[in-house]
Design a binder for these strands. Structure first.
Lengths: 165, 165
DNA sequence: CACCAATCGTTAGGACTCAAACAATCTAAT
DNA sequence: ATTAGATTGTTTGAGTCCTAACGATTGGTG
């Protein structure tokens, strides 16, 4: 379902195009596989878990963050999710239209907007997250227990080095 | 710069919300770190390598695929990049407006559109890809050589199991 | 030869992404 | 007390993402 060409075919072609330049193919493979994996997992979870509940990936992630940390401010949602405040504003508008979340202005600081789940939002998450986690288990079942730990560690290292610049 | 809460804080909170349900936190950590890493790496590369050339992530990826496999059909670009044909149409329109790619109708099959790089497109990629790969090296330098191999392998396994359903 | 089904790229509409600019609000310094 | 600066959430505009529907083209079959 992915590309027609394999990674090694691609590497050979890059070598042809950049004859004399030294290319770090091992690093290229890590980064390339990182995005392939993230995309594949995202698509898989959207189809198997989220689509039956008519929920988008971002919608679910925002719902999840609110579920865990409610009441939570918009800026904090953005920080947890890893996107901009502007994006969160749009997603919240969608979720609010579906009666899954509620926006309320803070009394101590009127600039802040506090977000909480509605009753049906809570019900949805209590049902949805175990399904989601079940599928996460299925996905990682291709890895040995030690691989699961080491992969998580490697990914965390990559995240850390990448963020501090 | 990411979330305020750590992963273990999140796990504790999930335990509180789902008291009696068994949750696979190790798998959750892998999936969570997968998306954090992909996002962080993407943002990092956009800022350090792509932004100076006024290029978006998707724009670069499409340019890269065309550079390697030109002349290439629209449907093949979509397959390599991992998105829909419709998305590619939009991105190509942007890239064509910047005079980086050329669209040309196939003579043997008039339904097909063949895409190639312009001179300036080729010049850009010959300059840009080594920079990009250099940064990939920097990112993976937090990992030992054996970790680089095993991480790439684990990610490939995840991609494969996830795609076949 | 004429039709039918498959396939190509494009368009339409809705959701999400960002950066930049904005009004409202709070805080700190004078 | 008042002004200046910082911060919050929102809006705007351009770009990207998807699915679904569309016209154009092709190939096979009756």
């Amino acid at each position: 379902m992915a590309g027609i060409h394999t990674l090694s075919e691609t590497e050979r072609q890059v070598s042809v195009l950049l004859k004399n330049l030294p290319i770090d193919f091992d690093s290229m493979a890590v980064v390339s596989n990182l995005f392939r994996a993230a995309n594949a997992v995202k698509n898989h979870l959207e189809r198997t878990v989220l689509a039956p509940h008519d929920l988008s990936w971002t919608g679910f992630v925002v719902l999840w963050v609110v579920w865990i940390w409610q009441p939570i401010e918009t800026r904090q949602i953005a920080a947890e999710v890893g996107t901009s405040k502007a994006s969160i504003t749009g997603v919240l508008k969608t979720l609010e239209a579906r009666k899954l979340v509620i926006r309320k202005q803070s009394k101590t600081d009127q600039r802040l907007v506090l977000v909480t789940l509605t009753k049906s939002g809570e019900k949805l998450m209590k049902e949805l997250f175990p399904e989601f986690n079940q599928e996460e288990s299925t996905i990682t079942s291709v890895l040995a227990k030690s691989e699961i730990k080491s992969t998580a560690t490697s990914l965390r290292k990559i995240t850390e080095i990448t963020q501090q610049s």
